[in-house]
Amino acid sequence: MTDAIVAGAALLLSLPVATFRSGFPTQPTVAQTWIAVVLVILACGALMFRRTRPLLVFAACVLPSIALPPSLVPATHLLPAFALYAVAVYRSARACWIAFGVAAVAVALATATAALGSPSELSLLVTTLVSGLVAMLFGALIGINVGNRRRYLEALIDRSRQLLVERDQQARLGAAAERTRIAREMHDIVSHNLTVIVALAEGATATSDPERARAVTGQIAGTARGALTEMRAMLGVLRDPELSPDAPLAPIESASVADAVESAQRAGFPVVLHVEGRLDDVPAEVRFAVARIVQESLTNAMRHAPLATTIDVRIAVRADAVELGIVNDGVRPRTDAADPPGRAGFGLPGLRERAAHVGGTLEVGPADGRRWTVRASLPLPAHASAEAHPEEHGP
């Protein structure tokens, strides 16, 4: 509708001028007048496509200024201005100035050619040329102003859409990371405690001593209560809106290397713990990671190496890192039938995530064909290293 109104306005403003008697000594013939009317109508019709084909429409609007006799050129002055405005708005300011320059040169050459044929009409030709160029210049300046503002608003809208997409992507990534974090904590709590409970329950079933069975069931109850306590603590963190999103899901104190080793020993597994240095002086976050890595490593040993005769846990607090080594000798030959593809659990990825969370590294795999090793190195901040090893830093 807008394009039709613009084309109609251009036709009403241009068509009557083609029929007026101009001040040129040489007046147009009737045929030339009709040709001018047809060209003006066609150029106005071309303005209907100024949004999609602005450069082609501009060429169609400039053509009458070059092809018609000088006395009929004033009828075509407004058409290039309308078309050049469209070039500036729907293409670019650069395209507008290039189109203006090309049209100005073409119209100037046509005027110079007409002046050579009629030197007496030079002043009228120059006036007609200047008025046409001024009309195009006004169209270009207005179009550039409107076009720049239009492109600026489009850029703002595109940026807003991009920010919305990025916000949604960040929200999805954050939700996925949070789900992974919750799954890791749930796995550490549930898997370890259930493994211990299963081992204790099997031991209680196998023994014929009522007193020993009663003691084992008490240990099962204690292990289950500890797991419930950890679960309640984690749910409390998840439901607390005032806590930071990065707050630990489980209390730091809930994970202890000694507790993990003691649970495995109560379940009947030959776990031996060796600690070098003062683990209590290690930052709480690193200490929590150490406890979880040991806990998950023992859980994997209890599940996958029930015939192990030794499970050796070694922790060394160095000047710049905490070194962990968990080794068991219960490795069994693995076959595709025993371990089909796609049945890998979440324990090993959780161990690597736990180590990476504090900037450490972790290596897992068989050694010597008979042992399974878990080795981790968790870096310590400088001030923590000084506290854990004061003798290395002087009095």
Rank of each mutant, 00 (worst) to 15 (best):
M1Y: 06
G8H: 07
A10N: 08
L12E: 06
T26V: 14
T33A: 10
A43F: 12
G45S: 09
A75M: 11
A83G: 09
V87K: 01
Y90G: 01
R91Y: 01
A110L: 15
A110S: 15
A112N: 07
S123Y: 09
L124V: 04
L133W: 06
G143L: 03
I144L: 01
N145F: 05
V146L: 01
L163P: 00
R172K: 09
A175V: 03
A176E: 14
T180G: 10
R181K: 13
R184L: 14
R184S: 15
D188I: 04
V198G: 01
R225G: 01
R225P: 00
T229G: 12
E242R: 05
P248C: 03
I252R: 11
A258K: 07
H274I: 12
H274V: 15
H274N: 14
G277L: 13
V286H: 02
I293T: 08
A301C: 13
A305L: 02
I311K: 10
V331M: 14
R332K: 11
R332W: 00
D339W: 07
G347H: 04
L351K: 04
G359F: 07
G360N: 04
T361S: 13
V364G: 03
G365P: 09
A367Y: 06
D368P: 00
S377R: 15
L378P: 05
A382K: 10
A382W: 02
A382H: 11
P390A: 12
H393Q: 03
H393T: 05
P395S: 10
